[in-house]
């Protein structure tokens, strides 16, 4: 493991400044992903800037009815927060479906969103990976890719984003608050992660050294009827094979509003706009839900070992929406 220095800044400005001074520095939050990758030699920062003591650990209801979640709020605390459980069940469920109790106690909101892909080849420095080492190739493209992307991948990278929380946030139209050396800005959550394209090593639209300070959830009364369904290879402590976050707002039988996002299908949490468009304003039936999923998945391009994800995501979309529709009765 590379020897590194450790700093614990007193405030956001100092944290951002520390990263600005050192191109090889990294923020350290719960460390549940970064430290693992350091041990594997995948990430080799020379300075860790610990953000967990910054005053970013509050969950605050906002005057507009939304919710502001500090960047260092632990996943367990967020999942247990009464407002989250009442107003955004999709979020609580996504969090609780992730990792294990021990990991969730350490993991933070921002760290979760910026965790790296679980692609085998990314995590092994002995194998080709454009994300880890630009230009080295993508071993996963024709390798063990059962768990990888079916949408929006490129020849350079077929990795998926592993976070469950991020799928829920994509569905909820969250906004990310960011501090950068020249000030703060808001980034719509769906714009935070990038497609792999030619540069899979660039995973987000954040500038180097940007610190996520909070995630804002806009008010969305319909989200009280929301759910997160995660398919996995064992009952707990497994990343998603595929997942669906869904919010459904019905006016009688008619879909007034719907939010759908898919996990474990692409390089970024996948907001299913096509499916939403196919549902909105129409009378809800399970068949319609299936057609909506088909509309979204029409552009899917499965890899060698993951063709099953297309019918899987379709089936889970139908189930999630149907359950929500029935729960309104």
């Amino acid at each position: 493991m590379r020897e590194f220095r450790y700093r614990r800044p007193a405030d956001v400005d100092e944290a951002v400044a520390l990263l600005g001074e050192d191109p090889e520095a990294a923020y350290l939050a719960g460390g549940t992903n970064l430290v693992d990758l350091m041990k594997l030699g995948v990430q080799r920062p020379d300075l860790l800037v610990d953000v967990t003591r910054l005053p970013l650990d509050a969950v605050e209801p906002l005057p507009d009815g939304g919710l502001r979640v500090g960047a260092t709020v632990r996943n367990s605390d967020l999942a247990a927060h009464p407002v989250v459980r009442r107003d955004y069940p999709v979020l609580a469920r996504a969090l609780l479906a992730a990792a294990s109790g021990q990991v969730r106690n350490m993991a933070t909101t921002a760290g979760n969103l910026l965790q790296r892909t679980r692609c085998y080849y990314f995590q092994d420095t002995g194998k080709a990976c454009n994300k880890r080492e630009p230009g080295s190739g993508c071993a996963a493209r024709h390798g063990q890719n059962r768990d990888l992307a079916i949408l929006d991948w490129s020849e350079q990278c077929v990795a998926t984003h592993p976070s469950d929380l991020a799928v829920a946030l994509a569905a909820l139209d969250a906004v990310v608050e960011v501090a950068e050396p020249d000030g703060t800005r808001d980034v719509p959550f769906v714009k935070l992660h990038r497609s792999p394209g030619e540069h899979p090593e660039r995973e987000t639209t954040l500038r180097r050294g940007a610190l996520i300070t909070a995630v804002r959830l806009p008010p969305l009364p319909a989200a009280r009827r929301s759910t997160y369904l995660k398919v996995r290879d064992r009952a707990s402590f497994a990343f998603a094979v595929g997942s669906v976050a869904a919010v459904l707002d019905l006016d009688g039988d008619v879909v007034r509003d719907v939010r759908l996002a898919y996990g474990a299908v692409a390089h970024r949490p996948w907001r299913a706009y096509q499916a939403e468009a196919a549902l909105r304003g129409r009378q809800f039936t399970p068949e319609l839900a299936g057609q909506a999923a088909d509309a979204e998945l029409a552009v899917a391009r499965p890899l060698t070992h993951n063709g099953f994800k297309v019918p899987l995501i379709r089936a889970v979309t139908v189930r999630a929406l149907t359950e929500l529709a029935e729960s309104r009765a």
Binding site: R118, Y120, Y121, Q123, D124, G126, K127, A139, G143, Q144, D233, R234, A235, S236, F237, A238
Partner: peptide, 21 residues
């Protein structure tokens, strides 16, 4: 992975074993 000649899932996050749940 035949090209590399080894097992690509070589830790307990990727090589799943049955858990308590």
């Amino acid at each position: 992975d035949e090209r590399y000649g080894d097992w690509v899932n070589h830790d307990l996050a990727t090589y799943h074993i049955t858990g308590c749940a």
